[in-house]
């Protein structure tokens, strides 16, 4: 009996080793279990829609052999989600949504992790930004508004979300480009900004097309210009700010990042899968519905993009007095 016990122990050990070996072989066949996509914001927001649409399409079109599981970890301007995913070092089964806050939250010192703790995986699209006024506003063009603002410093109110957000950065870019001083009013969310604009409580608002276009189509707001080099394909009658002499260019990226140091083959699999996804009808429809500009970038290109904007944001945020001096 004793011998049998020893034998079975030996067998068990051998079995475990065999299992481990099998695991090692299977590891090259990434993914062998579902991949978790952590959304850095709450349900129903832009990043949530982005990730859920993607997960549904990838499963439906069988782009990956395993499903993507979507999980919201909102809070701390995205910091909670970023720290959580960065902590999964080298694990290719975790991805996190990356938009502006992916760079600005670490820069503002709100989370201990930063760009170096992640592997950029892919970028999918850009959110465009627009400057709009109530239809009843006396400002017919961006130039008129800026001329007025130049003559009356800090008199023109601009609504947007939390300081450090895309909205606030857009406002800052206008101030820099036109050499004016605006009065930025912070609201809790895009909906509240729109309500304040419609009620005539603020003069202008920064919005992305997803939030603004329905109000524009129904004639409630006038869009003075887009923060882009060229006019938008979906809205060719709206001028850019640049053609009105205000050189303010801004886009928000929509991408995914993984923890730093994931295996190269896993990264390759993900890149291929996401490139395939950007060719699907579901993705095209998502971009059209949400007025996004398609902009796929692979890991290397996305990494370069993030580096470049990280530098730009560092300057902007420092100028806005949002980077703590240590």
């Amino acid at each position: 009996m004793k011998r049998f016990g020893k034998l079975s122990l030996l067998f068990a050990v051998a079995f475990c080793i065999a299992l481990g070996a099998a695991n090692a072989i299977a590891a090259s066949k990434y993914p062998e279990k579902p991949i978790t996509v952590i959304i850095h914001a709450g349900a129903g927001g832009g990043s949530d829609i982005f990730a859920r649409t993607m997960a549904a399409a990838i499963e439906k079109e069988r782009i990956l052999p395993q499903p993507l599981v979507v999980e919201n970890k909102p809070g701390g301007s995205g910091g909670i989600a970023f720290a959580y995913v960065a902590g999964k070092k080298k694990d290719p089964y975790f991805l996190v949504t990356a938009v502006t806050s992916f760079l600005t939250t670490p820069l503002m010192g709100l989370t201990p992790v930063g760009l170096k703790d992640f592997t950029p995986v892919a970028n999918f699209a850009f959110d465009e930004y627009m400057l709009m006024v109530n239809t009843k506003s006396k400002f017919k063009t961006a130039k008129e508004a800026i001329d007025f603002a130049r003559a009356n410093p800090k008199k023109v109110t601009v609504g947007g979300t939390q300081l450090g957000s895309s909205d606030s950065i857009c406002t800052y870019l206008i101030e820099k480009a036109a050499g004016v001083q605006l009065n930025y009013v912070v609201f809790n969310g895009g909906g509240e900004v729109n309500a304040a604009l419609l009620g005539g409580h603020i003069d202008m608002a920064v919005a992305n097309p997803g939030e603004a276009l329905e109000l524009y189509k129904s004639g409630k707001v006038r869009i003075l210009g887009v923060f882009q080099e060229k006019r938008l394909v979906g809205a060719p009658d709206i001028p850019t700010l640049k053609e009105q002499g205000i050189n303010a260019i801004y886009v928000q990226n929509r991408g995914l990042c993984a923890p730093a140091g994931i295996p190269a083959d896993a990264l390759k699999t993900l890149e291929e899968a996401f490139l395939k996804y950007t060719k699907t009808e579901a993705f095209k429809k998502y971009c059209k519905d949400n007025m996004l500009t398609e902009a796929y970038m692979d890991s290397a290109a996305f990494g370069k993009f993030l580096e470049e904007w990280n530098g730009k944001y560092a300057v902007i945020l420092k100028d806005m007095n949002l980077i703590k001096k240590k």
Partner: peptide
């Protein structure tokens, strides 16, 4: 919060509520 999530759900369904 609740209506914001509902708005998100509508957008997933390709419907964008607005004045029209």
């Amino acid at each position: 919060g609740a209506t914001a999530v509902m708005l998100g759900a509508l957008m997933i369904h390709g419907l964008r509520p607005g004045p029209m």
